[in-house]
């Protein structure tokens, strides 16, 4: 069973699994229909918070659950209240259903490296056994910390379920729309004055591949997933070739307000911290235990996104040009 198939990553992961002969049956669950057909996979329009999911798990004798129904941006969910409801309560209900379903043997949950936070007091590189030194301020990261708490609870109560928690770096790519991709598409980039964060990115294809790999591989517990290499915020900004303005911390709020009232996406506070201080995770476990190597480096990921962005920008002109 794959949850969150209405999302870009969830839908693609479900399609990849459905294409695999070794997988007997794939059930995709979400409130939103998938954007692309799931192939052999079946789509069930259901809310993970509803008892229907528990019934499905039992009837279909599901052995593996891939939980991708954790939503990163409030806009994709339809507001922050709904987002938190789906992320936290949805996970809680889904895991309760898993606990009661004896057929479930394997659980893979998509989490985020955002749970480590981003601050000047952090070590340069986070390994899986570390926790945030200062609690992350972002809603999504806080949701993910709660989600991980529930997953640990399930691991205690059902030690026979093998669990993999994928802590993904910021997912970027040609098609996916996230807060970060919206930010780098702004006509003028507001950058934090006197700061420069180390960014680590994960290509959308690699994010999907990592989920598929985690379903097949032995469970490894929490596992950081990120592309190779580091890109500084200043480098990323230079690569966009867009004009930028340094914003002193005091002017953060006015700039936010201005950009929001101008109808462009405002950067949430946690992403400001990310751009200012950055965050790098250690990916040794991903390579040695999960046995996964991303095909795209951080830099290649960003460049693939920029190429798609330039095409998008050029789109309307290409139509009007003779």
């Amino acid at each position: 069973m794959v949850t969150g198939v209405g999302g870009e990553l969830g839908g693609r992961a479900a399609r990849r699994l459905a294409a695999d002969e070794a997988v007997e049956r794939v059930i995709g669950v979400d409130l939103r229909p998938p954007r692309h057909p799931l192939g052999r996979g079946e789509f069930v329009r259901a809310d993970v918070r509803s008892p229907l999911v528990a019934r499905l798990l039992r009837q279909a004798e599901v052995d593996t659950v891939l939980h991708m129904g954790v939503i990163a941006t409030p806009a994709a969910a339809g507001g922050r209240v709904v987002q938190k409801d789906i992320n936290v309560l949805g996970t809680m209900q889904l895991l309760a259903a898993c606990q009661k379903a004896p057929s479930v043997r394997r659980l893979v949950v998509k989490s985020t490296a955002g749970i480590y936070g981003a601050s000047p007091r952090d070590p340069a590189v986070f390994t899986e056994d570390m926790a945030a030194r200062s609690a992350p301020r972002s809603d999504f990261a806080r949701d993910s910390i709660e989600v991980e708490g529930y997953v640990r609870g399930l691991a205690r109560r059902r030690p026979d379920i093998g669990i993999t928690l994928l802590r993904m770096a910021s997912v970027v790519g040609p098609t996916i729309r996230t807060v970060l991709t919206e930010y780098f598409a702004l006509p003028v980039l507001p950058v934090p004055l006197g700061r420069d964060g180390r960014l680590q990115l994960l290509h959308e294809d690699d994010a999907v591949a990592a989920c598929v790999r985690a379903v097949r591989a032995e469970p490894v517990g929490p596992c950081n997933v990120a592309g190779d290499g580091v890109l500084m915020t200043s480098q990323a900004v230079a690569l966009t070739r867009r004009p930028w303005v340094p914003v002193p911390p005091l002017l953060d709020r006015p700039v936010q307000w201005l950009s929001r009232s101008a109808g462009v996406a405002a950067l949430p506070r946690d992403h400001q911290a990310l751009l200012a201080y950055g965050r790098v995770v250690d990916t040794t476990r991903m390579r040695t235990e999960l046995g996964f190597a991303p095909a795209h480096s951080t830099r290649a990921t960003f460049e693939s996104y920029l190429a798609a962005l330039r095409d998008r920008d050029r789109g309307p002109e290409a139509v009007t040009a003779p």
Binding site: A124, V125, D196, R198, G229, V230, L231, M232, S234, Q235, A236, A238, L239, G278, V280, R299
Partner: peptide
């Protein structure tokens, strides 16, 4: 190199 971001840093940010 600076204008085209044609340089690499390590995981600690060393340039």
């Amino acid at each position: 190199r600076r204008l085209t971001a044609d340089f690499t840093v390590d995981e600690f940010g060393f340039d």
